Amino acid sequence: MSGPNTNYDPVEVAALDPAAIEGAVDAALAAAASADTLPALKAVRTAHQGDRSTLALANREIGALPPSAKAEAGRRVGQAKARVAQVLAARQAELEAERDARILVEETMDLTVDVPRRVPGRRHPNALVSERIEDIFVALGWEIAEGPEVEAEWLNFDALNLGPDHPARQMQDTFYVDPPGSGLVLRTQTSPVQVRTMLDREPPIYVLCPGKVFRTDELDATHSPVFHQFEGLVVDEGITMAHLKGSLDAFVRALFGEGTVTRLRPSYFPFTEPSAEIDCRCWVCEGRDASCRVCSGTGWIELGGSGMVNRRVLRASGIDPDRYTGFAFGLGVERSLMLRNGVPDMRDIVEGDVRFNRQFGMEI
C-alpha cells in the first residue's frame, strides 16, 4: 500500500480508474458466464474475488487516498464488488441446479425392479457330517475328545505299538516337523487323542475323537494329504467284540438309515488285537443289484478299521490290561460323506468351490 497521497489525482491511481474497475467487472462477469461447472466457477471466484484480484488491489489503494476522495472511490469499488458477487452467486445457483437435475437422472433408482436375493451362506459338508456323527455318539452317552494336530512321535506311533521299523513311520507316509530329530509329526491319525485320554483319566472311558489328520498322499479322486477322521474308544471292565459290533450297528443305522447292518472281517492293525475291517450293508441296493455303483454289486461297503485295544497300548497308557478291556474303531469323514451323498471325487470336497457346498445347504 502506498503512503498518503496529498496531491490526489484519480488518473494517476490506475487501480482506482473508473475504466479499470469497469473492465475488471466486465471480465469477472464474462468469466462467470463461461464457467460451465462448479469447479470452474470456483476458479473464477478465486481469480476475480481473491486477494490478488483487480478489485481487491483497488480496494487496498483506497486507504492511501485523502479523506475527500475516499468516499467516492469506496462507493465505486464497493458497487463493482457487489455486482461481481451477485453474478457469481446467481451462476452458482444455476450450476447447482443443473448438477442436481443431472444427478436425479443419472442416479435414478427404480424401486419396482426386483433385486437379486443375497445367497445365504453354506457350511462345508465336512463340518455338517462331522457334527452329525458327533451327535450320534453323544446321544449314546459318549464324550468328544480333541488333541493337537502337531503331535509327539511317541504318542502317534510308539504308544500305539508301532515300532521304530514300522513302515508307517517312514517319510512316504508321515510329515515330520523340522528340525530333524524334533520328535514331532503332523498326526497321521486321531489315535494319539485316545492315548492322551487314557493317560489323563481312569476308566470307564467312552470317547469319540474327531479331527484333521495328515499323510503324504497325492490329491486324487480317492486320496488327499489332509483329511478328517473320527475314532471311537471304549475302555471298561468286561468290554468284548459284541459291544463293538453293537455300537457300530447303532451308528450306521443313525447315519445311513434303519435296517443298515455291519459285518466284521478279520484284519490286522498294530494297536488292536483281534482286529477287523468294518463293512456295512449297501443301503442303496441291499445286495440285490449286481450293477450297483455304490457297492460295486457286492452288497457291502467298506467303512474303516476296528478291533479290541491291544494290551500293549493299554499298558503304555497306564491302564491295567488284566482288569480292563476296550475296543476302538476309525472311519473317515470324507469317505462317509462320499458314500452317504454319492460324491464321486475327493477333489470336489477340498477344492473350495462354493457351488459344491451350496447343494448341501445348512444341514444334511
Rank of each mutant, 00 (worst) to 15 (best):
E96W: 03
A97S: 13
A97T: 14
R99H: 07
A101Q: 11
R102G: 06
I103H: 09
L104K: 13
E107R: 13
E107C: 06
T108D: 08
M109W: 12
L111Y: 14
V113E: 13
V113K: 10
D114Q: 11
V115G: 11
V115T: 13
V115Q: 15
V115C: 12
V119S: 15
G121Y: 08
G121T: 11
R122W: 13
R123Y: 06
R123G: 07
H124I: 05
A127N: 10
V129R: 00
V129A: 04
V129G: 02
E131D: 12
E131N: 08
I133Y: 03
D135L: 07
I136R: 10
F137D: 02
F137Q: 07
F137G: 03
V138R: 15
A139Q: 12
A139K: 08
A139H: 03
A145Y: 05
A145W: 09
E146R: 11
G147R: 10
V150E: 00
V150L: 10
A152K: 12
A152M: 08
W154S: 10
L155P: 03
L155K: 14
N156V: 02
F157S: 04
F157Y: 09
F157G: 02
A159C: 14
L160D: 09
L160P: 08
L160Q: 07
N161Y: 09
G163Y: 06
P164S: 11
D165A: 11
H166A: 10
P167D: 00
P167V: 05
A168I: 03
M171I: 00
D173Q: 03
D173S: 07
Y176L: 04
V177Q: 03
P180G: 00
P180D: 05
S182Q: 03
G183S: 07
L184Y: 06
L184G: 04
L184D: 04
V185A: 00
V185I: 03
L186H: 04
L186D: 02
R187S: 03
R187T: 02
T188W: 01
T188P: 06
T190R: 04
V193M: 06
V193H: 02
Q194H: 11
Q194A: 12
R196H: 12
R196P: 14
T197F: 09
T197R: 13
M198Y: 12
M198N: 12
L199C: 14
P203T: 07
P203G: 07
P203D: 06
P203V: 09
P204W: 10
Y206S: 08
V207I: 15
L208A: 14
G211P: 09
G211V: 09
G211Y: 05
V213I: 14
V213G: 04
R215C: 01
D217E: 15
L219P: 10
L219G: 02
D220V: 05
A221V: 05
T222E: 06
T222H: 11
T222F: 12
P225I: 10
